[in-house]
Amino acid sequence: MPPTIESMRAAPSALPTTKTAPIGLARELALVAAGGMIGALARAALATRAATSLETFAISTQLVNSMGAFALGLLLATLERGHPRPSLRPFLAVGVLGSFTTFSTLVDDGRLLASSRSPLVAIAFLALSIAAGLVAFLLGQWLGGGLGRGYGRGRGGFSRLRSHGRSAP
């Protein structure tokens, strides 16, 4: 059975459909475009820096992707908890973080790895890369306090600090 709109709303998602009131298409796309510009520039700047200092192309993409997945987990968990401005999701989740992270460059890194090492090494690299991203996302989500939702468990991370009266970073 395919998930309903309601079940998608219940779970954190990077999509503009969840929870918040819809905003106009033109406005949404403008926010996505602005965010995409920032995300792509940040990715290129970081990747160039990391590639020249580490001299390893694959690590820089991996670094950017893990950082972005972590940030998205943190962001979505935070957005789920409150009543965010409807512009935040398209700008930050779809635009900035969606563009900051990349899949095509990752796969292309894998291609270079396949030719310099072996196809098996490349596939292992991609699999590990995705696994690392999932862990980073979950860690971000946990820190954002989202893991407790719907699982009957206590909230983790910063929300625990918050409940003790301290301010979140």
Binding site: S13, A40, A44, L72, A93, T101, S104, L106, G133, L134
Partner: peptide, 27 residues
Amino acid sequence: AFVAIGFCGSLSTFSTLCADAIRLARA
């Protein structure tokens, strides 16, 4: 730079892929 880093890099995403996978697992 426009096509490879900008367009392909931003058309594809890794963060949303992770979010989607987790959402599917929990749905």
